[in-house]
Amino acid sequence: MTATGVKARVPVGDAPPEAADGTAEGPPPERGRRRLSRTDRRDLALGLKYISPWIVGILVFVVYPVGYSIYLSFTRYSGMGAPTWVGLGNYVTAFADPLVAKSTGNTLFYAMIAVPLGLVVALVLALAMNQNVREVAWYRTIFYAPSLIPAFAMSFIFIVFLNPQFGVFNQVLNIFGDGANVNLLGDPTGVKIAIIMMAQLGAGNAALIFLAGLRNVPKTVYEAARVDGAGPMRQFRSITLPLLSPVLLFNLITGVSGALQVFTEAYIVTNGTGDPDAGALFYMMYLYKNAFGFAELGYASALAVLLFLVGLALALLIFWCSRRFVNYDVEAS
């Protein structure tokens, strides 16, 4: 087996080919209602046994709240007393609400930049955390430390960086500009960029997942590649990236999920207002405000259902696309 074989991703051994792709396996059970064979039934029973904690969990902690929210989304409800049925009223209101449009725009802006950027930053950190140096424990701890710091403390330090007069950011800006002080947080677009930059300090979480993924790449694969004369860039492209693809998929989907629900940083940096000019009013902030600030739980539930549907559609799309790039077969080398 040679290093070039990595790229081909040919499964070896007697693992069935579809085992390499967790998403495209087995005929869907509802198709044709065909009877399951005895082995199938035994496998099903075993599988269900193993995932039973999750089944209980989803029934108790998910199905009930979700059903309840879907019901509430068709009502006017303050959280107290009895809900009033309003049919599709909340959805009609949501599509006409300028703040829904604005917060959706802000959230998409955030997601389009923060998700890819976050992946790159996390990967760089993970590679740094994976260096073979004696003091690597310190680096790992340092890179992860900002992820431990409560968001309010984080926002304070970050705002020091952004100080229009003394902050690092403006010192750099002044090299190009006319020297006038600029407050990034005072601009409706700037504040989003600031929040995206701040979120990168918390890249330690995704980096840790990449690190675990990197530790999964057998050393022998690199050794073989090196024997074959592959340089560092080539190794990264042909070995590291393909073998990281399962965790890349994970970080991508959870990144999208996190970006669509971005809340805490924006809430703290803007003191819950979402200003200037609603530039940092993200969808989740507006949803939360409606639920617990304005006691409009029915409307908030409708917003939640919409967010859930969009998120789910995106996740399935990513999954579908992922069949092409995700490789679960470590041994394909």
Partner: peptide
Amino acid sequence: PYAKADAFFATYQPPNA
């Protein structure tokens, strides 16, 4: 002007300071 005043306040009384 807002931008100038805003830069002023962000300098001398940043949010969450």
